[in-house]
């Protein structure tokens, strides 16, 4: 049971590629790998702990203000993450700028709370939240890998394409500007969704034939 709670969101039920949650921010922060990693980490912390806290409270929350209570917990955690980043990782917090605040609107968090945390034990909710955050992170890192490599010719900020390959230095190569614009993010996410679905479909078929 525990193992499945953790492993399912990574691939089989990945929040971005299978459940199509959190796509908006996956498009926004994937131009470079470093902010994508920090974003993934921040979202993982917020999904994990908001699931944990709301699962602890689940039997006391009045039904009518359920969503508001969820939002308060999520918003509080996001502000905490933002404050801690500003105090201890100032350069990265500047790089993520508005996107930290936008974690609040990440559909994965509320989605998992509504679908899982409110009906399960706190520890399971914590694991489910962290796993979904990581599943989101996997997609973010994959998308940002391609976008940074082809769009900027770097990975984690380190140049990978030799300087003299570039047209400006008399070479033959030029970075693809389309990759740093949002439309290409959507296309890359689309391709990843395709790969995931093809893979899952194959597995389903195998299980069927048995």
């Amino acid at each position: 049971m525990n193992k499945r709670i953790f492993l399912d969101p990574l691939f089989k039920n990945n929040p971005v590629s299978v459940l199509a949650l959190g796509i908006c921010s996956a498009l926004a922060v994937t131009v470079k790998m470093e902010p994508a990693l920090v974003m993934a980490l921040s979202v993982t912390l917020v999904t994990g702990f908001s699931g944990f806290i709301l699962s602890l409270l689940r039997n006391t929350i009045p039904d009518r203000i359920r969503i508001i209570v969820q939002l308060i917990v999520i918003a509080t955690l996001v502000i905490l993450v933002d404050q801690v980043l500003k105090a201890f990782a100032y350069p990265i917090s500047k790089q993520l700028s508005v996107f930290v605040g936008l974690i609040i609107t990440n559909c994965i968090i509320m989605g998992r709370i509504e679908a899982f945390a409110l009906h399960n034990k706190p520890f399971h909710a914590l694991v489910d939240g962290i796993a979904n955050g990581l599943g989101y992170g996997i997609i973010l890192v994959a998308v940002s890998f391609f976008r940074e490599l082809f769009g900027s010719g770097t990975l984690m900020g380190y140049p990978l394409i030799p300087e003299n390959w570039y047209v400006s230095a008399g070479g033959f190569y030029e970075n693809n500007g389309l990759f740093i614009l949002p439309p290409m993010a959507l296309i890359v996410v689309g391709l990843i969704v395709w790969v995931f679905n093809a893979r899952n479909a194959k597995k389903d078929k195998k299980a069927w034939n048995k």
Partner: peptide, 12 residues
Amino acid sequence: FDHEAETPGLGA
């Protein structure tokens, strides 16, 4: 130069 909230990877 520095900025408050420009798009990471583009204006930033």
